[in-house]
Amino acid sequence: MSVKTDVNEIFEVKEKKAIKVNSEWKKVKGFALGLIIPAVLLIIWEVAVRFSLLDAYVFPAPTTIVQKIIELANEGTLWGHVGVTFYRVAVGFLAGMVAAVVIGSVVGYFKWFEQLMDPLIQAFRSIPSLAWVPLFILWMGIGEASKVMLIAVGVFFPIYLNIVSGIQGVDRKLIEVGKIHHFTALQTVRRIIFPASLPSFLVGLRSGVGLGWMFVVASELMGASQGLGYLLVVGQNTYSPELIIASIILFALLGKATDFLLKTLEARALKWQDNLQNQF
């Protein structure tokens, strides 16, 4: 008795094209569904201010806020503020990421280095990052260096933690496959450990960017002459809530944009993952 069958007949592979149209439609529908509640809230807010149910001096109408943003854009100052803030986040993020990648990889790969370094790093992690602010200002003055440093410190920890756990979580069984093929240590890192820990690294990057935006606000509130955080302070001092809310909205947009960028990168790099997101 010999079982012989054509494999192609027996196994079915998910038919990709047929589902694609369907899933595009589903995406649009899901997106539209998510817009309903914000739209309703905005309308209620606008109406409430127009009928003086809310005090416009405390709670400016959405249209007033949009006008403020347009006004800033027309004046030309908006791009300067946005640019400076974005620049600080970018430099701080890059610095924090590079440090986290270097230290995290070594800690994750070499057990002895983990024993050497990890207790210290964990101790530093338990310090709330904002507590560094006075010290950084003392050391580096109120200029760019202290701001970037604070952002880098904030970005460092989530990326570091994710890299270490990503590397340590690589399946021993896959590493054995490398051993069977007589891989050198470098080959093992490059061809097995790096791709296997990529998902966790990308998660770290995303939470790192989130923290980067958080710390740029903190650092700009402490003292700056430009930037979205500076606009927050100006808004507070000049009793103009529309300026504050306008900056908050700009922060939200920028944060969302960078996260979306990383999310797209993640989806591209990880299309091989067998998870809920990749079902279609």
Partner: peptide
């Protein structure tokens, strides 16, 4: 091995060429 132990980030072709 008992399990296939394929690299999930590589296609079938790339997995076969792995070593």
């Amino acid at each position: 091995f008992q399990e296939p132990r394929l690299m999930p980030w590589l296609t079938v072709k790339e997995n076969i060429l792995f070593g």
